[in-house]
Amino acid sequence: MSEFLRTYLTVGIFGALGVVLVGAFLGLGRLLRPSRPTPAKTENYESGVDPIGDGWSQANIRYYVFALLFVMFDVEAVFIFPWATRLEAYGMFGLVEMAIFIFILLLGLLYAWRKGMLRWV
C-alpha cells in the first residue's frame, strides 16, 4: 500500500477507535447506573406539561434557500483549493480566470440578496 493511502488507513483507524471509545465509555456507564424507567420519566420534555401532538411537528424551516446557496459556495470551495495551491505557477492567467469565477458566484449571491432571500421573512 502506498504512503498516501496509508495515511487514510490511519484516519480510518482513528475513526474506528473513536467509535470504540465512545461505546466503551457508554458501556461503563451502563454497568454503574440505575435504570428505572417510568411513563412520566420517558415522556418528552415540554416545560413540565404533557406534550401536545407529535414531537415531529411542522415547522417553518426558512433555510432551504440558504441550503441551495451553501451547495453553490461549497462547490466553489472544491474548485478554489487546488487553484490556491498552484497560483504561483498559473500566474496572471489563473488569477484572471478565478476572478471571473468568483465574480459569477458573487452575482449569484447578489441576485439572492436583491430578491430578499437573505432577509429573515
Binding site: 418528552n44 420534555y45 415540554e46 406534550p51 407529535d54 414531537g55 415531529w56 411537528s57 415547522a59 424551516i61 426558512r62 433555510y63 440558504f66 441550503a67 451553501f70 459556495f73 461549497d74 470551495a77
Partner: peptide
C-alpha cells in the same frame, strides 16, 4: 431523533447556522 419540539427547532437552527458559517 429526540422527537421533541425543542430539540427539533434547536437542531434545525444549529444546521442553518453551521452551514452558513462553514463557508
Amino acid at each position: 431523533g429526540s422527537a421533541s419540539k425543542y430539540s427539533l427547532m434547536g437542531g434545525l437552527r444549529a444546521t442553518g447556522q453551521l452551514i452558513a458559517y462553514e463557508l
